[in-house]
Design a protein around this nucleic acid. Structure first.
Lengths: 213, 213
DNA sequence: CCGAACTCCAACTGGATAGTTGGATCTTGA
DNA sequence: TCAAGATCCAACTATCCAGTTGGAGTTCGG
């Protein structure tokens, strides 16, 4: 008989995981503190080690779970791929609502980007699907063929998410210099602007484009 | 009489600073190790503390010096602002040749992005100049006016530099999944693609645009 | 009610690391 | 040749932090 896990164990585990996501997103792998995670979760450190083994394993777990979810978070059907700008807008909105995941992605990139990364094959699937959808939209004349599908996806992701990687530059760019000891807010680029930029860059080259008509 | 600094002191200092740039770029503020910096520089740790005080001060120094240089690195005259794509290409090339500085920028963004940042006012100047140049190019009809100058600059910087923030995603996007224990290379987007994307998004809206003709 | 598993907590260990110190050696200007 | 300051180096201290342990309280199934 399999143990039925009555009790709160699943909840406890989840609380720890959630706290870890927040902590890692805020401080990264090198800057985070196990004690802080436990305190944040309201769970004893002993439990954390009981469930996850060690900090490294917990980090890996967090990355695997959250970044796979992130890659799959904003779907892209063939239909939708015909207006990449709209898609970029949705990606931007998603990131704005879940900035922690975006930061997680960047920590992973800076701290471990050189090595093979957690669940690389699995995550690759999500991106491949989207690139393929874009390629089909190009083939059918809804998007320019003068830029590769992968590079169009690159542009979408970069434009929709760069602000979280360098918020200080965004603040400077928009002229919102942080004055007293105030915590400068995110300074996300305007959604309409991102939508417009991606549309303009991806629109078919001339004549009877099918997009928008 | 001012002390003339004969001796190698300036060189010693510079070696330490250079090593610190490399170390910080590689590991960030939380992950770097003072001993490693000293060893990398071939200078004793004692000297490092003699010159810079402590790790925090050294980090601040590195950020101030290198990131101000980075902001000023790729100039943008009014003339050049008329072809933003070409400018994006230059920025990309610069980043590709000095990836350490780009990583420095991202570490700063992730670790300290929320707070007011080193030399924010000084650095703002460099960006303001460029935004202003773009705005003039828009006013004169060389670039679309449908996207704000600041947001166009945002796009240029994001497209030219995002790859270093999330190299793992770039690797996945381009299908170059890291196989053995191999250190996956940077997977920088193609320069022509970036140039093309920025040109397409910034081209004047219709009719007698002055660009490229 | 009992035992097993869950939980807490505080104290502890061990290793890594920031920063210091003292003494030896070398460089340079006078 | 001398003094001052630059450099090295190895050892040292103090702290921080990951991970462990033991004991006590709690909650469930039976």
């Amino acid at each position: 008989m399999i143990k039925l896990m009555a009790w709160q164990t699943e909840l406890t585990r989840q609380r720890l995981l959630d706290a870890a996501v927040q902590e890692f997103a805020e401080f990264g792998g090198a800057g985070c503190r196990v004690d802080r995670i436990a305190k944040r979760a309201g769970i004893s450190k002993e439990r954390l080690y009981g469930y996850f083994g060690d900090k490294e394993a917990l980090f890996t777990q967090v990355l695997r779970q959250e970044l796979a979810r992130l890659a799959a978070a904003v779907p892209l059907s063939d239909e939708q791929a015909r207006d990449l700008g709209e898609y970029a807008g949705r990606v931007l909105r998603h990131h704005r609502e879940h900035p922690a995941l975006l930061r997680l992605l960047y920590w992973e990139g800076l701290e471990r980007g050189g090595e093979a990364v957690v669940d690389e094959l699995g995550r690759a699937g999500y991106y491949e699907e989207k690139v393929a959808a874009v390629a089909r939209a190009q083939r059918d004349g809804y998007l320019t063929a003068s830029i590769s599908a992968a590079e169009l996806m690159y542009a979408v992701i970069a434009l929709a998410g760069w602000w979280a990687a360098a918020p200080q530059v965004c603040r400077i760019l928009t002229g919102a210099v942080t004055p007293p000891g105030g915590r400068g807010d995110a300074a996300v680029p305007g959604e309409e602007a991102v939508v417009a930029m991606v549309r303009r860059m991806s629109v078919p080259d001339h004549g009877a484009g099918a997009v928008g008509r």
